[in-house]
């Protein structure tokens, strides 16, 4: 690794850490690390707190403007040779089933992945338990994905494709 490579690697790491810290600060300021506020946002029959919709609207407005500018004006990202933005447009059962399962967990626990990591880092015992269970859930999905992949490969092999 040359000195320039090492410097750019260090800069890439520092930039990602900065982005994570800004993201986390945004979550804390907007109240996303308070499960009671998520519960009241998702439950309109129990003193509805619509403020989280404004958090989402603010984030979407800023990101939409930046995204449009970056994709029009920037040829390649600072620390990669190209952009890795998903291009899929097809709908499948996994997308809907996965989002539905995630929603149930979000409504039940009042935490989604980002805020749960921030709250766990603050020492909140319940959030630490949530994050450990979440990592187990992710691991479970990775394992079933490998199994599905192996089964599909075996089918292709049998059919001679």
């Amino acid at each position: 690794m040359t000195a320039v490579d090492a410097r750019s690697r260090a800069a890439a790491i520092a930039m990602a850490a900065l982005a994570g810290a800004l993201f986390g600060a945004g979550l804390v300021i907007s109240g996303m690390t308070q499960p009671a506020r998520i519960a009241h946002f998702l439950d309109p029959l129990d003193g509805w707190d619509p403020s989280l919709a404004f958090v989402m609207a603010g984030a979407v407005a800023v990101y939409a403007a930046c995204h449009a500018w970056i994709r029009r004006r920037v040829d390649r990202p600072w620390f990669d040779i190209r952009f890795h933005v998903p291009a899929r447009a097809d709908m499948d059962r996994q997308l809907v089933a996965g989002a539905a399962i995630f929603g149930v967990g979000w409504g039940l626990g009042g935490l989604c992945p980002g805020p749960s990591v921030v709250a766990a880092a603050s020492g909140n015992t319940s959030a630490i338990a949530f994050v450990l269970a979440m990592l187990a859930g992710m691991y479970l999905r990775h394992r079933t994905m490998e199994r599905d992949g192996a089964a599909a490969a075996a089918r292709r092999h049998r059919s001679g494709a």
């Binding site: 996965g98 399962i101 967990g105 979000w106 626990g109 935490l111 949530f130 859930g137 999905r141």
Partner: peptide
């Protein structure tokens, strides 16, 4: 909830 969030998001 954590288990569902982890599995569902992936």
């Amino acid at each position: 909830a954590g288990l569902l969030v982890g599995f569902g998001t992936r």
